[in-house]
């Protein structure tokens, strides 16, 4: 059975290759929806602020990284833990028909929404032939 389907709230831990010392790296839960105008990605990254986000595009691979500021309240001790805090990382390959120059990003309530508009179709150039 697909783990993500049966436990949609469980954050899947991905390879902690580029993580800070002893901070796990999670793969954000993502929705991808396509319309005629383009593609929208919605990534759950609770705890990540706009300054802690890094979105990069290289050879059509869109990589999203988020750094979390670990919350440690004072004068209390951890009694019950259901979720771990850590960084986020996930990469997507863009299809050819999307315009990498016009990607828009919006962060709201811990969800990053990326709007990837479709590239304007290359219209066949018409060459007007003038008669002398």
């Amino acid at each position: 059975m697909n783990d993500q389907l049966t436990k949609p709230e469980t954050k899947a831990e991905s390879t902690p290759a580029e993580s800070r010392a002893r901070v796990p790296v999670y793969r954000p839960l993502t929705d991808i929806v396509e319309t005629d105008d383009g593609v929208s990605l919605m990534l759950e990254m609770p705890g990540v602020g706009a300054d802690d986000l890094d979105i990069s595009l290289e050879r059509r691979v869109l990589t999203i990284r988020g750094t979390v500021r670990i919350f440690r309240p004072e004068n209390v001790e951890l009694a019950h833990l259901e979720y771990g805090e850590g960084d986020y990382e996930r990469a997507f390959t863009l299809s050819e028909d999307l315009d990498p120059e016009r990607i828009e990003a919006e962060l709201r309530n811990g969800v990053l929404t990326l709007s990837l508009p479709r590239a304007e179709q290359k219209l066949p150039k018409k060459i007007a032939v003038k008669t002398a």
């Binding site: 709230e9 609770p46 209390v76 001790e77 009694a79 019950h80 979720y83 309530n109 969800v111």
Partner: peptide, 22 residues
């Protein structure tokens, strides 16, 4: 279940955090 909660406990206070993205 959703949402996941973490609980901290002290002698005089309790702190609860929860992830509620979206």
């Amino acid at each position: 279940g959703f949402p996941a909660v973490n609980v901290w406990r002290g002698d005089e206070a309790v702190a609860i955090t929860s992830e509620l993205p979206g």
